[in-house]
Simulated scan of single mutants.
Amino acid sequence: MKIASLTTAALVASSIIFSAGFASAQQPVQPRGMNGSYIGAGVAAGVTNGGQQNDAALLGGNVQGRAAIPNAPVSLRGSVLFGGDATALMPMLTYDAPIAKNTNVYLGGGYSFITEEGKSTQLGNRNAPVVTLGAESEVAKNTVIYGDAKWGIDAYENSDADALSFQTGIGLRF
């Protein structure tokens, strides 16, 4: 009786282990996106204007960074848009979704602080809430490319217009 019980227990355990292995093999593999932090620089193009003087579309540069939060799908980001009459400084929080090996898309929000309100930047001419949507990918060891769009909500003085800016650049991952 004791041998039969041990044999039955061994068969049940083997079946459970085999089933668990088979079930895990059937689960789709989640892509492992890019982790880690980086800082980069590139170009920024404001493509809107508020319809008033000193708020035309503008081409300039950007410095952007990502501070990844370990074991969490969110990141702290910072962006500086420069090259106009003023500079836009943006702290942001994003949700990062892996879409391929070493590649993420991100969506988030923050606030744009203009160094001199009323002066032009790629993202309007006054302080405003910002929504961002972008992608980032590590293309070589510690080398990241990124690109995003930033939407400044009600970002122009004396206007109800929103601002839209596109950024792209290359960064160093650390």
Rank of each mutant, 00 (worst) to 15 (best):
S112E: 05
N158K: 14
D55I: 15
M90W: 03
Y95Q: 12
D160N: 13
A41D: 14
A128G: 08
A67P: 00
Q167I: 11
G118Y: 11
A140V: 02
L58C: 11
K101E: 01
T48F: 12
Q30V: 04
P129G: 09
A163M: 06
N158L: 10
T103L: 05
A56L: 04
P70I: 07
G110C: 00
G40L: 09
M34E: 02
Q122S: 06
N49T: 15
K101Q: 12
A44V: 10
A149L: 14
V47A: 07
S159M: 09
G40E: 04
N54I: 07
V130I: 04
N35V: 03
F113T: 09
Q26C: 14
I69W: 02
N102S: 06
L133W: 15
T87G: 13
T94A: 00
V63Y: 10
Q52T: 15
Y38M: 01
E157N: 01
F166M: 05
A163K: 03
N102F: 00
P31T: 05
E116H: 08
P98A: 01
A128Y: 12
M90T: 15
A97F: 05
V74A: 02
I39T: 11
A155S: 10
P91G: 05
A100V: 07
A57D: 13
N49G: 15
L89R: 09
G40K: 04
D162V: 09
